[in-house]
Simulated assay, not measured.
Amino acid sequence: MQAMIFLPVTALFVAVFALLQVPMTVAVGLRRAKSGIQFMDGGDGTLLKRMRAHGNFTETAPMCLLAMGAAELAGAPGVLLWSVGGALLVGRILHYGTLVTSGFGIGRAIGMILTLAPLLIFPGFVLAQLFRQ
Results as ranks from 00 to 15, higher is better:
73 L>A: 09
54 H>S: 05
93 I>D: 00
48 L>E: 12
77 P>C: 09
104 F>H: 13
93 I>Q: 00
132 R>L: 15
5 I>N: 09
114 L>P: 04
83 S>D: 08
68 M>N: 05
79 V>S: 14
121 I>E: 01
90 V>F: 13
65 L>T: 08
75 G>H: 02
74 A>R: 00
116 L>Y: 13
68 M>D: 05
47 L>G: 02
129 Q>P: 00
10 T>E: 05
21 Q>K: 00
117 A>P: 00
62 P>Q: 10
25 T>W: 08
13 F>L: 13
56 N>Q: 04
106 I>Q: 08
123 P>W: 01
114 L>Y: 03
102 S>W: 14
54 H>V: 01
82 W>K: 03
41 D>S: 12
74 A>S: 12
62 P>N: 11
20 L>A: 08
33 A>F: 07
89 L>N: 08
2 Q>E: 15
111 G>L: 05
35 S>A: 12
31 R>L: 03
126 V>D: 03
67 A>Q: 08
122 F>H: 06
112 M>I: 10
67 A>D: 05
28 V>S: 01
60 T>S: 04
8 P>C: 09
99 L>G: 00
82 W>I: 11
96 Y>G: 04
121 I>T: 06
91 G>V: 04
22 V>W: 07
73 L>C: 09
97 G>V: 12
61 A>Y: 05
89 L>C: 06
52 R>L: 11
9 V>E: 12
64 C>A: 15
6 F>P: 15
27 A>E: 01
96 Y>P: 01
22 V>P: 03
64 C>S: 13
12 L>W: 14
108 R>Y: 06
